[in-house]
């Protein structure tokens, strides 16, 4: 099966610093691929290249086999690549429905004038919230009054509704209570079941092994190790995260 998203030998420099040194990975439809690595390994830079924030200096990306080179985050989004940022990018003063449809509100005619189709927004949002089984049930609730996990749910609902092909989650559980983190894992699995490719950036290895189908380890700007979650262990991941796989020759000696 061809990969949904293919990243090949991406190089990204910031002045003299090489943040990505020929990074390659493949993301398949319907899987959760976890990306782990120490701080400074290049995870954030990589997801910013994929989501159109930074252009790559070298290398190429392919989305469903076609060349993919987003110039802006908006362009990435238009091609079905949705990034759920740590700050979640929600408008606090708007309600749940308004946030899910922000920038893409359905329109109906009222006396010939284009007005927002509220009924449709609320109806679809309600169905969507039921589908992801969240504790947010009222699409009219203002986002300001939601908990961190509930806000995650809204961000997920948005990615799900707009039929994203790839969803990138940047340490989604970093600021959450344990119960809420469980829900986030469930949302990620839900997205994968719907055929989405999920790129999950995580810190907590226990959680990563629970959520992911496959795990990729980054070290110093490269993907140094990839394995099926079931076939690897925390010890092995830590070994590669700390540079254990970098110089096999030395390791033998």
């Amino acid at each position: 099966m061809a990969p949904l998203l293919e990243v090949r030998k991406i190089v990204k420099r910031f002045g003299p610093v090489e943040a990505l040194r020929g990074t390659s990975l493949e993301l398949f439809r319907g899987e959760v691929l976890a990306l782990v690595g120490d701080n400074g390994a290049g995870k954030s830079t990589l997801i910013k290249v994929i989501s159109g924030v930074y252009p790559a200096d070298e290398g190429e990306m392919r989305l469903e086999g076609r060349p993919y080179r987003p110039a802006t985050p908006k362009e990435a989004r238009a091609q079905g690549i949705e990034t759920i940022y740590q700050d979640l990018a929600l408008a606090d003063d708007l309600d749940v429905g308004a946030n899910i449809f922000l920038g893409r509100e359905p329109i109906r005619r009222l006396l010939g004038l284009p007005v927002i189709d509220e009924a449709r927004i609320y109806q679809e949002t309600r169905a969507l919230l039921e589908r992801i089984r969240t504790t947010v049930t009222d699409p009219r609730r203002t986002v300001r009054n939601l908990s961190g996990g509930q806000r995650q749910a809204v961000a997920f609902a948005r990615a799900l509704y707009w039929k994203s092909r790839v969803v990138i989650m940047d340490e989604p559980t970093a600021a959450l209570a344990p119960m809420e983190a469980k829900n986030v894992i469930r949302y990620a699995r839900n997205l994968a079941q719907e055929g989405v490719g999920v790129l999950y950036i995580g810190h907590n290895l226990v959680e990563v092994l629970e959520v992911a189908d496959r795990v990729a380890v980054m070290h110093r700007g490269q993907v140094v190790f990839t394995a099926h979650a079931k076939a690897t262990s925390q010890q092995e991941l830590v070994y590669y995260m700390t540079g254990g796989g970098e110089n096999p020759g030395e390791a033998k000696a």
Partner: peptide, 14 residues
Amino acid sequence: YAVGSNPEAARRAG
């Protein structure tokens, strides 16, 4: 309201 609430979110939403 969206811009006043979170300009960055509004921008990302197009």
